[in-house]
Design a protein around this nucleic acid. Structure first.
Length: 800
RNA sequence: GCCGUUGUGGCGGAACUGGCAGACGCAAGGGACUUAAAAUCCCUCGACAGCAAUGUCAUACGGGUUCGAUUCCCGUCAACGGCACCA
C-alpha cells in the first residue's frame, strides 16, 4: 500500500491542533528552549518558498529539543502593519484590517499545511490594539527618557509612497520598497535616539552568539571611530571645530573644509567677499537628491570662503577655508582639516584647486597619490613629532592639544538617529498630544491603546501629511496636562516598531498589565535561537536590540540582550539561479509543492537543498529524490521483524544518532538527511529490518518529516504518539569502528589499502603496510627516509 | 573604492584543528519487470589514455610552505551581499 500523504498529513495536523501538542508549558522548573523565526508580513501574495526554509530549520530544532525533554517555545505571529496592505486599501477601498484578516487566514492555513510545531495559542498580531497598546507604551517610555524627540530635519522622502523613510530604508538612493526616487525634504519628524545606544549595541555584540557576518555588518553600520576634536582659530574670531582620525597629520593641514550647511557660514555672511557664490553653492547642494549625491565617480566641487581664514594651531599659519559637499553636515562637527598628502579625498580636492600638499608622513610617493598607510609611516616636517610612528604621533599630539586646551580625544559613530514617523494610515498611532501651551504631551498610560480611527480615504494628503490629519473628530482633543484644546499627533510609527519587541509578547501574550510578566520573562528570556534573513541585520535586528537594551535599562525586561544566538539562512533562488520574482516568472508556490509531494517532502527538500547559510536554486527534479526516500521509508513496514538492532548495524546506528543530533544543532540539515539516507541504504541492504531499528530511525527522521513518522509510529504500535517519546541516545564507545580501512601512501600517493583496528599500535601498522606486496615492490631497492602514521587515517612512506 | 562571503563532476552539494576529493541526492546511460508507459529494482557514472590491472591530470588561476594542500600563506581573476565622500 502506498503512502497517502494528503490524508495522513491532514490527520496529524488536526491531532496536533486538537491536543495542543506543541503548546509551551508554564512550568518554569523545566529546562527551556525559546526558538524564534521572523514573523511574516502577511502579504497578498501568500507564503513564499523562502519562508519555510527558515521555519522548517528551527522547527526541526524545536521538535528535537522537545523529544530531548525541553520545554520549548516556538511561536508565530503577524507583522501586519505596512504599506502594501495600505496601498491595496487605497486602490480597493477595503479597510486594511479586513485585508489583513484575509491574508492572515491564508498564511495561517499555508503554515499549518507544512506541519510546523508552532504554539498557536500564543499567536500575535502587531495590528491588534491589545498588542500595539504596548508598542505605544514603549514609545511613551522612550519619550519620557528623552530618547524620542521631534526634529525639523531634511529627511528621505519617497516620491511614490509620499512618505518619509529611515536611512536604512533607502537603498542606492531609491526607496527600498517601491524603487522610486528618494529626495530630501525638510519636515518635522519623530526621532529615536538610537545613537545614545551606539556603544552599548557595539559592546553587546561581544556577549552574543551571532554568526560573524551579522556582527561585522552591525559593527560597520554603527561605524565607531576614534580620533580627535580640534579647535582652529579663524580670522573671524570664531573657533572652527573639526573632527579627525588622524591628528598626527596636523602639520600637514593646508586648508579646511566645511559642509555647505555649516552654521558658521551664516554667522560669517557679512565678512564673506564672495557671499553670492557661496549662497549659490549652498543652494545646489541642498537641492541634490540622495540619488545625485551617491552617483559614482563624482568630481569634487567646492567654493573658497573669501574673507575668512583659519589658523593652524601647531604652526600659526593661515590656511584657506572651503565649503564642499564632500564634507557631511551630519557627521563629526561638519567640518574637517584637510591633509591632502594623507587623505585621498583631500588629495583630489587639493589637486583640483591647486592647493599645497605637504608630506608629513614618510613612506609613500605623494607626487602620485595620497599616502594613507598608518602602519609603516614615519612623521616628517612635523616639528616635535618628527621621527615618530603614526601611533606614537597620535598620542603625542593629543597630549599637546589637551595641554593647550584646543583639542581632545573623541569617538564618533556613523550610526544616525532613527527617523520614526511615517505619514501613513496603517501603523500604530503615536500617543502624543500637541498642546499650544504645554508642547508635546504624552498620552497618559491608562488611555492606551490609542486606537487607529476609521477614515474614509487612505490616501496621504497632498501636503504630505498622514491620512489621519483629515480626521478632525479624532485629531481634536484636549491636553492631558492642562485641559486646553489640543491636537493629536497624526503621524504613525514605522513597520519596524511592532517587530522590535514581539518576541517579548509571545512569552505572555494575553497579559493585560504588562508586555509580559516578570516571572515569565525571567524564565523565557533571552530568545535562545533566532533565525532570520541577512536583510534585517541593520534594520529589525539592530532596532530590536536597541529597544531591548533600553527596556532593560528602565527595568522593564530581564535580559540585557534579546537574542542569545542569531543565524541566517540563504535565499532560495529560482530554477534559473536568479532571485525569485513575478517579473522573472520563476516563482515556486509552496502550495503547489505541498499538493503534489506533501509537506514532509517539501520540508525535507528545503533542508536537503544545500548549505543552510548559502543561497540555493530550486530544482524541481531534486525534490523527487526526497519523495522517493520517504516512499522507501514507508515501505520499511512491509518486511519488519521483531528484535533489536542487528549486531552488524549497531555501529552505524550509533554513528547516525550522533551525526543527526549534532548536525541539527549546527544547522547542517543537509548532511543529517544524507546520513539518514545512507543508514536506510545500509539497513535495507542487510536484509529485513527489525522493529527497534525502525523505531530509532523514525525518531531521528521525525523532526524533518513529522507526519509520516508519527503515522508509522502508530501503525507499528511503538506506544503512544511519537512526539511523546524520547530522543535516541548514542554511546561514544559504540561509534568506534572495529576495523578501519586506511590508505597506504608512498611519497604522498595512495598505492594500497590496509585494514587495521583503529587503535592498533603505530609500529604494527607500519610493519603491515611495508609487507603489502604492492608496497614492498615499490620500496624495493630504496631507502626509507620517513614513515608517517596518522592514526586510523593513513600511512605515508617516504622513500628515495 | 572599502568591508564581508563564495569559487569542488553535467547539476545541488560532501569532505576543511592539512591526511584516501566527489558522501548523499538529481540528471544521464545500460539492464530487469511490463503488451506499453509510469512507478520500482539492479548496474555504470570527474577528465584523458588503455582490452585490462593500472597510469596521468583534476577542488577558479599563478606561486609558496609541507612527506602530504580543496583546507595554511602570498598574489591574480570572477561572482554574490553590504556600505558608499563617515574625515
Amino acid at each position: 500500500m502506498s503512502y497517502d500523504f494528503k490524508s495522513t498529513e491532514k490527520k496529524w495536523q488536526d491531532i496536533w491542533d486538537e491536543k495542543q501538542t506543541f503548546a509551551a508549558k508554564d512550568d518554569y522548573t523545566l529546562p527551556k528552549f525559546y526558538g524564534l523565526v521572523e514573523f511574516p508580513y502577511p502579504s497578498g501574495q501568500g507564503l513564499h518558498v523562502g519562508h519555510p526554509r527558515s521555519y522548517t530549520a528551527l522547527d526541526i530544532v524545536a521538535r528535537k529539543k522537545r523529544l530531548q525533554g525541553y520545554n520549548v517555545l516556538y511561536p508565530m505571529g503577524w507583522d501586519a502593519f505596512g504599506l502594501p496592505t495600505e496601498n491595496y486599501a487605497i486602490k480597493t477601498h477595503i479597510h486594511p484590517a479586513v485585508v489583513t484578516e484575509q491574508n492572515v487566514k491564508r498564511f495561517k492555513s499555508q503554515l499549518k499545511s507544512l506541519g510546523f510545531s508552532f504554539d498557536w495559542s500564543r499567536e500575535i498580531n502587531t495590528t491588534d490594539p491589545e498588542y500595539y497598546k504596548w508598542t505605544q507604551w514603549i514609545f511613551l517610555q522612550l519619550f519620557k527618557e528623552g530618547l524620542a524627540y521631534k526634529k525639523e530635519m531634511a529627511v528621505n522622502w519617497c516620491t511614490s509612497c509620499k512618505c518619509v523613510l529611515a536611512n536604512e530604508e533607502v537603498v542606492g538612493g531609491v526607496c527600498e520598497r517601491c524603487g522610486s526616487e528618494v529626495v530630501r525634504k525638510v519636515k518635522s519628524q519623530w526621532m529615536l535616539k538610537i545613537t545614545d545606544y551606539a556603544e552599548k549595541l557595539l559592546k553587546g555584540l561581544e556577549d552574543v552568539d551571532f554568526i560573524e557576518r551579522v556582527k561585522t555588518q552591525q559593527r560597520n553600520w554603527i561605524g565607531r571611530s576614534t580620533g580627535a576634536q580640534v579647535k582652529f582659530q579663524t580670522t573671524a574670531g570664531d573657533e572652527l571645530q573639526i573632527y579627525t582620525t588622524r591628528p598626527d597629520t596636523l602639520f600637514g593641514a593646508t586648508y579646511m573644509v566645511m559642509a555647505p550647511e555649516h552654521a558658521l557660514i551664516e554667522k560669517w555672511a557679512d565678512r564673506l567677499e564672495n557671499l553670492a557664490e557661496v549662497r549659490a553653492y549652498q543652494e545646489t547642494a541642498a537641492h541634490k537628491s540622495d540619488f545625485e549625491r551617491t552617483e559614482v565617480a563624482k568630481d569634487k566641487t567646492g567654493v573658497r570662503l573669501q574673507g575668512v581664514e583659519a589658523i593652524n594651531p601647531v604652526n600659526g599659519e593661515k590656511i584657506p577655508i572651503f565649503i564642499s559637499d564632500y564634507v557631511l553636515a551630519s557627521y563629526g562637527t561638519g567640518a574637517i582639516m584637510a591633509v591632502p598628502a594623507h587623505d585621498e579625498r583631500d588629495y583630489d580636492f587639493a589637486k583640483l584647486f591647486h592647493l599645497p600638499i605637504i608630506e608629513v608622513v614618510k613612506g609613500g610617493d605623494i607626487e602620485k597619490e595620497a599616502f594613507t598607510d598608518c602602519a609603516t609611516g614615519v612623521l616628517v616636517n612635523s616639528g616635535f613629532l618628527d621621527g615618530m610612528s603614526v601611533e606614537e604621533a597620535k598620542k603625542a599630539i593629543l597630549a599637546w592639544l589637551e595641554e593647550k586646551g584646543i583639542g581632545e580625544k573623541k569617538v564618533n559613530y556613523k550610526l544616525r538617529d532613527w527617523v520614526f514617523s511615517r505619514q501613513r494610515y496603517w501603523g500604530e498611532p503615536i500617543p502624543i498630544v500637541h498642546c499650544p501651551h504645554c508642547g508635546a504631551v504624552p498620552l497618559p498610560e491608562d488611555q492606551l491603546p490609542l486606537v487607529l480611527p476609521d477614515v474614509d480615504s487612505y490616501e496621504p494628503t497632498e501636503n504630505g501629511e498622514s491620512p489621519l490629519a483629515n480626521m478632525t473628530d479624532w485629531v481634536n482633543t484636549t491636553c492631558p496636562h492642562c485641559g486646553a484644546p489640543a491636537k493629536r499627533e497624526t503621524d504613525t510609527m514605522p513597520q519596524w516598531a511592532g517587530s522590535s519587541w514581539y518576541f517579548i509578547r509571545y512569552i505572555d501574550p494575553h497579559n493585560q498589565n504588562a508586555m509580559a510578566s516578570e516571572e515569565a520573562m525571567r524564565y523565557w528570556l533571552p530568545v535562545d535561537w533566532y533565525n532570520g534573513g541577512m536583510e534585517h541585520t541593520t534594520l529589525h535586528l539592530l532596532y530590536s536590540r536597541f529597544w531591548h537594551k533600553f527596556l532593560y535599562d528602565i527595568g522593564a525586561v530581564t535580559s540585557p540582550e534579546p537574542y542569545a544566538k542569531r543565524t541566517s539562512h540563504g535565499m532560495i533562488l529560482g530554477e534559473n539561479g536568479e532571485k525569485m520574482s513575478k517579473s522573472r516568472g520563476n516563482v515556486v508556490n509552496p502550495d503547489d509543492i505541498v499538493r503534489e509531494y506533501g509537506a514532509d517532502t517539501m520540508r525535507l527538500y528545503e533542508m536537503f537543498i544545500g548549505d543552510f547559510e548559502k543561497a540555493a536554486p530550486w530544482n524541481s527534479s531534486s525534490i523527487k529524490g526526497c519523495k522517493r526516500f520517504l516512499d522507501r521509508v514507508w515501505a520499511l513496514q512491509g518486511d519488519c521483524r521483531k528484535g533489536g538492532i542487528r549486531a552488524e548495524l549497531e555501529n552505524s546506528f550509533h554513528k547516525t544518532i550522533r551525526k543527526v543530533t549534532e548536525d541539527i544543532e549546527n544547522l547542517k540539515m543537509n548532511t543529517a538527511i544524507a546520513a539518514l539516507m545512507a543508514l536506510l541504504n545500509e539497513m535495507t541492504a542487510a536484509g529485513p529490518i527489525t522493529e527497534e531499528e525502525l523505531r530509532i530511525f523514525l525518531l531521528l527522521l521525525n523532526p524533518f518529516a513529522p507526519h509520516i513518522t508519527e503515522e508509522m509510529w502508530v501503525q507499528m504500535q511503538f506506544g503512544g504518539m511519537l512526539n511523546e517519546a524520547a530522543w535516541p541516545q548514542y554511546e561514544e564507545a559504540k561509534c568506534k569502528d572495529a576495523q578501519v580501512e586506511i590508505a597506504v601512501q608512498v611519497c604522498g600517493k595512495v598505492k594500497a589499502k590496509l585494514n587495521i583496528a583503529p587503535d592498533e599500535a603505530k609500529d604494527s601498522v607500519l610493519q603491515k603496510a611495508k609487507e603489502l606486496p604492492a608496497i614492498a615492490a615499490l620500496l624495493e631497492g630504496k631507502t626509507l627516509v620517513k614513515e608517517i602514521y596518522v592514526p586510523a587515517k593513513l600511512v605515508n612512506l617516504v622513500a628515495r
